[in-house]
Simulated scan of single mutants.
Amino acid sequence: MTDHSITGKTVLIAGGAKNLGGLLARDLAQHGARAVAVHYNSDASKAEADKTVAAIEAAGAKAFAFQADLTSAAAMEKLFTQAKEAMGSIDIAVNTVGKVLKKPMVEISEAEFDEMNAVNSKTAFFFLKEAGRTVSDNGKICSLVTSLLGAYTPFYAAYAGTKAPVEHYTRAASKELGERGISVTAIGPGPMDTPFFYPAEGADAVQYHKTAAALSPFSKTGLTDIEDIVPFIRFLVSEGWWMTGQTILVNGGYTTK
């Protein structure tokens, strides 16, 4: 019988230095992962990556940090190669990379669109490609999207629009990799209480989002807290393996499909 526990497994997390990715890296180490590879984007995130590596090692797992701009296919291939060489295998791969832009469509420049597409869509595609080539049989792959995929709203066309293809990439990858026992999922949190959220929102919008979910009164911030998302990802990359090809919105009742 295939072992779907996290114990003894190796993990690669793109965007794993801080916020949701950093908390997930720590959590999986605490739940028995043998080794965790933490990707971070630039020198600005190195200090946070080093803290996450130290926390993983304190939990008893091996830890490795790799810096890369993952908007190129070559960089993505190199990351997976380095991570596999360091850990010996990659059993679980999670992509938390993303960029938010809140702006009317008529004001979005071509350069802004190209950047959003590169970070949210292209990166996700080549992450799934390399995961498909590298992740062990019976492995697990999970990508972060957004609950805005289920919302009817203005101003997020470039953000939700460049995250939307990941849903299709996930379905295709799950079909193509299923014969190897690999499950592939995507998870869409609601607006999260992280430093990425607030710069894109005005005070009125922040207040709205803090009250928009059905369970907002029971959240410490009113928003989706990263502590509430990590257990869902942990489940999907372990005992929840039978769910594949799905995009799950986890947002306390902020929106649904």
Rank of each mutant, 00 (worst) to 15 (best):
I226T: 15
L177F: 00
F127W: 05
G22I: 06
G188F: 12
A205W: 03
A151P: 07
L28R: 11
S143Y: 13
A158K: 12
G21V: 05
T96C: 11
D69C: 08
C142W: 09
D3M: 04
A65N: 11
S143N: 11
S136N: 14
A151E: 07
A203E: 15
A83V: 03
D114F: 02
P189I: 12
A29F: 13
G181S: 05
F232C: 11
A164F: 07
T247C: 07
E57W: 09
W241N: 03
Q30L: 08
M192A: 14
M192Q: 09
I233H: 04
V250F: 13
D137F: 02
G22T: 15
S183D: 05
D69L: 15
I108V: 15
A213E: 03
Y156V: 14
I141K: 00
E239R: 10
A59V: 04
V184I: 13
A124R: 15
R234H: 08
P195D: 14
A68F: 14
G253I: 06
S174V: 02
Y156L: 04
L148G: 03
M105H: 14
E201Y: 07
R171L: 09
V36D: 09
M116W: 14
A131F: 04
L236W: 08
L249S: 14
I187E: 05
L128Q: 08
D228Q: 14
F64N: 04
